[in-house]
Amino acid sequence: MRVAVLGLGAVGKGLLRMLAEKPELGLVLTAVADSSSAWIDPDGLDPAVVLDRKCTTNRCGTQGLTADQVLDSGAYDVLVELTPTNAVTGEPALTHMRRALSMGRHVVTSNKGPIAAAHAELEELAAEQGVALRYEATVGGAIPVIHAIRNGLAGNRFHAVTGVLNGTCNYILTRMDEEGLTYDQALAEARELGYAEADPTYDVRGIDAAIKLVILANTCWNLGVTLDDVAITGIDGLTVDALRLADAQDCTIRLIGEASPERGLRVAPRVLPRSHPLVIEGTLNAIMLSTDMAGECTMMGKGAGSVETASAIIGDLLAIRDRWVECG
């Protein structure tokens, strides 16, 4: 199966590294593009060579060639869209994905923006063209929660989805709880360790968690909710005293995303008993699905990281290969 990759940041590099290490998967890289270059070869590129070129020259291919040319080449069965995310417009990824789907190509993405902004439209376009749209890597890093909702728990009615969806916030809260660090100290530590961006607003104000919650909600119920439908409270106003007071009751505080058709969507710091399955440590993520048949099902794992995200992308690629490409 031929794969084109747009975007060679941490996730794109992680994916190429895994493709180089696992040739037995039968995923053939035929095109790549970063922000200033591209490389197309319908006969297949060596991901290790592309990576090497990217690391030494900071360009993966020929300067002047662009993502548009990759898209138009049609030299791929699946487009893997990994360009930087834009939470509001979803661009330029949204345009890339629309074009690939319109050309009858499958799309796999880790890009939250377009999936949160235009999930229904993209699914419709994919259905019209008889191709797949998969976005496991947008939520919960390596945790296969979208597969669980669509496949493993297929046929269940989902009452609610609740989760720890942002590793940065979970790390900060874990450190405030365990070490009595202030919010500012814990944030500084998270930055030093590379868990928080230079501008952490997106994470600590709950926006990143809210976008993921929107994606989960639309996957469960297909109600066409958007970021505007989420009531969001971040963790930046939390005090050490708040964690201490929670601790005195054998509880702690975590940033929780919670969605249900009745109660809507909400991201806020919440008090949870320490024994609650969503009380997890450090940068981990966890998602609890409440269903009619399976009851409560909680998945936990690494919510970020280049290879972890590559795991989710490769899972999607192989699902497409098995379901769509080889059969027909």
Partner: peptide, 12 residues
């Protein structure tokens, strides 16, 4: 003021 509420037990 910021309110931190308990996470209710799931609606079962």
């Amino acid at each position: 003021l910021l309110i931190v509420e308990p996470l209710a037990e799931g609606e079962r």
